[in-house]
């Protein structure tokens, strides 16, 4: 199986005036064609930084300091800027969380999609416009010809996100990174958008990396799931296994904290404690101070990802093994 994207032991660090720290600390995963990988974790666990590392959009004081990222077999980290720019928006596309601020308010929606087409596919203005309108139609925006000339603020939240998706997919990317695309939307719109992404994925055959903190969304869209905590991967498994046979104490804690219909409870279950600040990571397992199963070993050594069974890996010395 040739994965479209493969991330090997990625380490990304930030260098600030207050000190430097590793936001991503040894993350590995692969995604194949037509496959959706869900990345789940709390805020600050490094899931967005991972995506930015892949895109090469870390900004001023962030840098990949270890590991490798391969797109269709070729390492992205060695590429020069022009090569990267050619891949961005073309081979790899990304959609973001807040569509209102993600679109430039002073240019029309059509223009913003046109320019991507003209840049990567070298289309003429006329051809680009045609394709753009087609894309807008594809993502389910009614009367795309008039919407083409609208400004972002003239569209509703759901429509903006659709426009963003149209923009991202306009050049037929092979890999799509969706960074919390539905978090800012209403639940009903959310469902529509998720459906849209699935549909387009099937149609275009993309690999999709879906980042969210919402386990409900994960259960709907992901084929496989990566659970991240404080810059490391805790558990990788199929969606079914993650929900039915979670192994890492963190995953179990996450699942337990979701209130279930039909279950009667007096209190919501939480994971006690807080995520450690990336500048003050303890040696050993990052989850040690909140883990009900932590032992001395956990405080000394960092657990590595070990295969539990085919397609299911866990990084824990005291993992739960269900029947």
């Amino acid at each position: 199986m040739n994965p479209v994207i493969s991330v090997e032991n990625l380490e990304t660090s930030f260098f600030t005036k207050g000190g430097s720290f590793r936001a991503v600390n040894g993350v590995s995963f692969e995604i194949a064609r037509k496959e959706t990988l869900g990345i789940v974790g709390e805020s600050g666990c490094g899931k967005s930084v991972t995506s930015m590392s892949i895109m090469g959009l870390l900004g001023g004081n962030g840098r990949v300091t270890g590991g490798d990222i391969r797109f269709k077999g070729k390492s992205l980290l060695n590429m020069k800027t022009p090569e990267l720019e050619a891949i961005r928006g073309n081979g790899i596309a990304m959609i973001f969380q807040e569509p209102m601020t993600a679109l430039n308010p002073v240019y029309r929606v059509g223009f913003q999609i046109d320019e991507q087409l003209m840049r990567h596919q070298l289309l003429s203005k006329k051809d680009a416009k045609e394709k753009t309108i087609e894309m807008l139609r594809l993502v389910g925006i009614p009367s795309p010809e008039s919407r083409y000339s609208n400004y972002p603020h003239q569209l509703s939240g759901g429509m903006r996100q659709r426009a963003m998706i149209a923009m991202a997919l306009s050049c037929d990317p092979e890999f799509l990174i969706a960074d919390e695309p539905t978090t800012a939307l209403d639940v009903t719109i959310q469902a529509q958008i998720l459906e849209l992404i699935s549909e387009l994925q099937q149609r275009l055959g993309m690999a999709v990396q879906f980042i969210t903190h919402d386990l409900g969304v994960i259960s709907e869209v992901a084929d496989r799931v990566v659970v991240m905590y404080a810059g490391t991967v805790c558990e990788v498994a199929t969606t079914a296994d993650i929900f039915s046979k979670p192994s890492h104490p963190y995953t179990i804690g996450l699942l337990n904290s979701i209130p279930k219909i039909g279950e009667k409870r007096d209190r919501l279950e939480t994971i006690p404690g807080n995520v450690p600040s990336p500048m003050r990571l303890p040696p050993g397992c990052p989850f040690q101070n909140r883990c009900p199963r932590a032992t001395e070993q956990c405080r000394r050594e960092r657990p590595q990802l070990e295969q539990l069974k085919e397609g299911h890996s866990v990084a824990c010395f005291n993992k739960v093994v269900s029947a």
Partner: peptide
């Protein structure tokens, strides 16, 4: 610092275009 600059870069536009077309106009 705005998000749409990040988007413009994610689209693979050359930095020059990002600055002069997207940023400066704002």
């Amino acid at each position: 610092r705005q998000d749409y600059i990040r988007t413009a870069r994610a689209k693979g536009l050359a930095e020059k275009r990002v600055v002069f077309v997207h940023a400066f106009r704002n």
